[in-house]
Design a protein around this nucleic acid. Structure first.
Lengths: 396, 396
DNA sequence: ATGACTTTCTCCAGTCACAGGACAAAGGGG
DNA sequence: CCCCTTTGTCCTGTGACTGGAGAAAGTCAT
């Protein structure tokens, strides 16, 4: 099925579509206040958008002391698909044109099985959402992958944790399978866009979004736009060296941040601690393979275990050390901490804050909030929907 | 004397002025090729610019097989003043509208004497340039100061090495004294703009410009525009911690990069080395106060002294360690090394390169040139001229 | 109910920006 | 001397846009 054949014909229409997306239904008069166009011109552009079917006028709003206004809203049938591919699980969600999540599925998965297997699963999940009646079809999809992406082409490049993905034409392939436009980006960038659109980063122009999960990455937003760097690898802070000649890292170097703190490193440290007789309450959580996960550590810390709290604090200190440097360098207006280990909560945040406030310049930290993301696992999928809507709501 | 009363009336005119600034004299036809406007519209805008006196038509170019074209160029009498205030010296230069340096003076100075004394000296230097016949007056001035600046107002904020400058209304005061528009920025940002306009960074959109002088700073260029951060302190990498619990730094923290490598730190290390019986050939260069400078170390290294080379290499390693992190984070297309210690030359560059290429991600370093700035002390003043011309060559 | 006042939206005419073609000017080459 | 190329100017038509004059549809006080 072919959907949303129309695209905005000019920058004004694109602007209006985004206003309706971000601000919800609006009257012509309210739109006019935000757009610096004469009422006449605005009416013309709105009429054209109505003709294309991208927006609809449904019903009258309550009077505000005068003639009642017509409600202009984005077509209620528009549906975007947000896909967030992690290292060990996938999130797939449908949103409407205002990027509200209508349905959300999360399933375990292993990226190392390669793109073909992963996207088979993703497409099945999308089909499930469609079958549940949330969408008759998709007008666009935004996909996040856990590694660098050559953004214009939508192709992962040299992804360390995703062997077999290098050069796989994700955008082209999924666009064919799904029959709609697709955009691909790094998962961290999607998280940043999600928090920017619907989370803690609303109304902040320049901010950093640090995602700590299986790996560590950082979304960089400059002037409201995601900055991706010249080869799409900007924000890859997991392999910044924090300890000269330190622990070996999977990347081949030594002393990388990720070798000290990430979901994987934390689990490994916890297993070691159990082996040394510490962290006894975690011993019974060991699975058959003798493995623990970051979630177990979070639970132990929440239960007040001192060793677990120490592990989290040590990792937070390392991470805070790196973030402190980035704050001095980038001077952001906000730092968002998110990703899988957000469950470690306040202990982690406190450690990071301590390091940053102590090490960074007073001028850079003076008015700098460091907060946890507020969207959790939906940040990525909302970011995906935002990514593709940004693309579709721009002049053809 | 009032000069350059006119400003471009619209974005087209601004665009044309910048093309003439960056590309030199041009015919209407050549301009038309670069600007995506019809010949008629272009002719109208050029005529209007001619009326204002901002550009002039002088003479005919050689024929290229048809009618000879008129040379359109920026008014030859336009003069910009570039001022680069360092910690221990000032550079002042006059440029024409194409930002070519017509005259350049450098004088020793001490920022700590405060803004009033410093600007008295700067104004005297400007007067000297004027008296030498290079300018009848100035159409604008761009000023760089060695500390963070609240850019829109042109006011230094909380400058660590410039007590007495905090809040001094540089832009307003100098604008009055000079009788022309003034813009103020961090000196590092000016260096970046200089190298971007006339140096190694031409045609690079995203790059970093590391200036190592009395302190260490980094200019950040994103999409061709200088990024200043939310409080104007972006790029302040001198106080990133490179050694937990390391050497005390003037900023009050410990282990800052500047405590290990900068003009001041290098001189101190050299003095220590002399005290320990090393670096004997430098002993006779000690001044009456028993002091050395970075220049002395550079000379010793050039003469082949192993200790001097080791000092430079050690500093380069520390700096490279920090830059490696920034490269992973920012994924630039180029890294420029400049500032006073550029005299340390290849030894320094090699150390930095080694660290970056070894520590940063292959994807980020794959095609990453790390080079010395090519403008030396003129980078800052050209950047100043560029800063003010960007401002003047934008719609009023 | 009635009139005064608001707010929203539409219609219309006039202005400005701009493109594109015709044409003039000025040169080169066979 | 004729034809071609390049550059620059002029002119006209089209579409974008503004601002004002209403019309439509409501609230509120009297």
């Amino acid at each position: 099925m072919r959907r949303m054949t129309a695209r905005p014909a000019n920058a004004h229409q694109a602007r209006l579509l985004r206003l309706l997306r971000d601000g919800g239904p609006n009257s012509r008069a309210q739109l006019g206040d935000q757009v610096d166009l004469s009422r006449s011109k605005l009416a013309v552009e709105v009429d054209r958008l109505l003709e294309t079917g991208l927006v609809v006028a449904d019903g009258l709003a309550a009077s505000r002391g005068g003639r009642r206004s017509h409600n202009i809203r984005l077509a209620p049938g528009l549906r975007f698909l947000g896909v967030d591919i992690g290292a060990t699980s996938v999130d797939v969600a449908v949103t409407n044109a205002e990027l509200e999540v209508l349905g959300h599925i999360n399933q375990p998965m292993d990226v190392r099985e390669g793109p073909v297997a992963v996207f088979e699963q993703v497409l099945a999940m999308a089909a499930k959402l469609k079958a549940s009646g949330l969408a008759e079809g998709f007008d666009g999809a935004g996909i996040g992958v856990p590694g660098p992406v050559r953004f214009p082409e939508g192709v992962p490049v040299a992804p360390p944790i995703m062997p077999g993905w290098d050069g796989f034409p994700v955008r082209e392939a999924i666009s064919q399978d799904l029959g709609c436009p697709v955009m691909v980006d790094n998962d961290v960038n999607l998280m940043a866009m999600g928090e920017q659109h619907a989370g803690v980063a609303r109304s902040v122009g320049d901010f950093l979004c640090v995602k700590i999960g299986t790996g560590i990455g950082c979304g960089i937003v400059v002037g409201g736009e995601v900055y991706r760097g010249v080869t799409g690898s900007a924000g890859d802070i997991g392999h910044i060296q924090v300890e000269p000649d330190g622990r070996p890292c999977a990347c081949g170097n030594k002393g990388c941040l990720e070798a000290y703190f990430s979901g994987a490193a934390l689990a490994r440290d916890a297993e070691d601690a159990v082996g040394q007789g510490l962290l006894q309450e975690l011993a019974d959580r060991l699975d058959t393979a003798g493995k623990l996960s970051a979630v177990d550590v979070a639970a132990a810390a929440a239960a007040g275990d001192a060793t677990a709290i120490d592990l989290i604090r040590a990792g937070g200190n390392r991470t805070g050390q790196v973030i402190a440097g980035l704050v001095s360098f980038f001077n952001p207006g906000l730092v968002v901490i998110g990703g899988g280990v957000t469950g470690l909560g306040h202990t982690l945040l406190a450690a990071i804050r301590t390091q940053v406030y102590r090490q960074s310049l007073p001028l850079a930290t003076g008015n700098l909030p460091i907060v946890l993301g507020e969207l959790g696992p939906t940040a990525g999928v909302i970011g995906g929907a935002r990514l593709i809507s940004d693309h579709l709501f721009s002049p053809a």
